[in-house]
């Protein structure tokens, strides 16, 4: 018997005009950072009130990452830079210059000394934050990088690219350790998002054919596949997602830690919650009236969703 996931909407905010790109809780869960396509970043408190606006990027911001201690926020922008903001002074403390095209994704390591960024210039860069220096440039993809993530101990970087490949890199040496490709016949779909499982042994990857796949990378194989169905639970015809990079997250039920749920946004405003073990769709959450859900994040039992047109919602799961 598959149990549904209950949820309750606890916060519903409409963030001004213009397109939003990314929203993230800080690790503590007390602040939400939201980035906009006009290049600004807003810091909101738990009630959704604006604490501060961070201005500095000249073009749209695509991705945000909090450091583990919550003192810093990194932002990736189309102006080819990555900026690091202090959340104590709300000032930009570092600007990392080196990418030659739009930066699409950023990630702090757990120690807060390295930052990984992926760009449309097809390169991944590893930065020494303290000295604003690029330590390594990993050029192994042949299309824009859509997402990067780090294993929990920070030693492996995983990257997703529109060239259809998922690659793993050694953080220290910058060597490519492994390449994963889903062989779906003639075409390999662009990979739009990738993340490590909490223990770093599996990779959850979204591709633009509308599937989310869980990979066992040691074994080079897909162990679970989750499909997005347009009509919701029970409907079999799968849909093409194809346009937006909707991200995913894991939700671990505190009452039942054996139950792990994969949460994913979709192109048409719904959020999917699948049970990992059975691959069944447990709930379908309508977080927007048809605008793509660009970001989902689970933090301390709360689910944060952000649509492209600025609908930012928080659900208690």
């Amino acid at each position: 018997m598959v149990q549904k996931v209950d949820y309750e909407l606890v916060l519903d905010i409409q963030l001004g005009s213009g397109y939003t790109t990314c929203a993230k809780f800080n690790p503590e869960g007390s602040l939400i950072a939201v980035s906009f396509a006009n290049g600004t970043i807003q810091i909101l408190d738990q009630e959704g009130h604006r604490v501060k606006e961070l201005k500095g990027h000249t073009l749209g911001v695509s991705d945000l990452s909090w450091s583990e201690d919550g003192r810093y926020l990194a932002s990736a922008s189309d102006d080819t830079t990555v900026k690091i903001w202090s959340i104590e002074s709300f000032k930009c403390v570092k600007t990392l210059v080196g990418h030659t095209y739009h930066v699409n994704c950023v990630k702090f390591n757990h120690k807060g000394n390295l930052l990984i960024s992926g760009s449309s210039d097809e390169a991944i860069r590893v930065w020494d934050i303290n000295n604003s220096k690029c330590l390594k440039t990993l050029c192994a993809h042949s299309d824009p990088i859509s997402a990067v993530d780090l294993s929990w101990d920070g030693t492996i970087i995983v990257s997703a690219s529109y060239d259809g490949l998922i690659r793993l890199f050694d953080t220290q040496s910058g060597q490519c350790l492994k390449t994963l490709i889903y062989d779906g016949g003639d075409v390999s779909y662009p990979v739009s998002y990738v993340r490590f499982s909490p223990n770093g042994k599996y990779i959850l990857a979204s591709t633009l054919d509308g599937a989310v796949r869980l990979w066992d990378y040691m074994d080079n194989k897909v162990v679970k596949t989750f499909f997005a169905h347009k009509q919701g639970i029970g409907e079999v015809s799968k849909i093409e997602m194809g346009k937006y990079n909707c991200n995913t997250d894991f939700f671990i039920d505190e009452k039942d830690p054996s139950r792990i749920i994969v949460v994913s946004g979709s192109d048409f405003g719904s959020v999917f919650l699948w049970d990992v073990k059975s691959r069944k769709l447990l709930s379908l959450l309508q977080a927007s009236e048809g605008s793509p859900i660009l970001h989902v994040q689970v933090n301390n039992g709360k689910l944060l969703t952000l649509s492209r047109v600025g609908e930012c919602k928080v659900y208690q799961l």
């Binding site: 223990n199 599996y202 990992v276 691959r279």
Partner: peptide
Amino acid sequence: MAQKNLELEEDIEVDLLTKD
């Protein structure tokens, strides 16, 4: 082929939490 692979996935146990 795809269908076959999906059926195989049914029985795979995954542990996403236990760290080395």
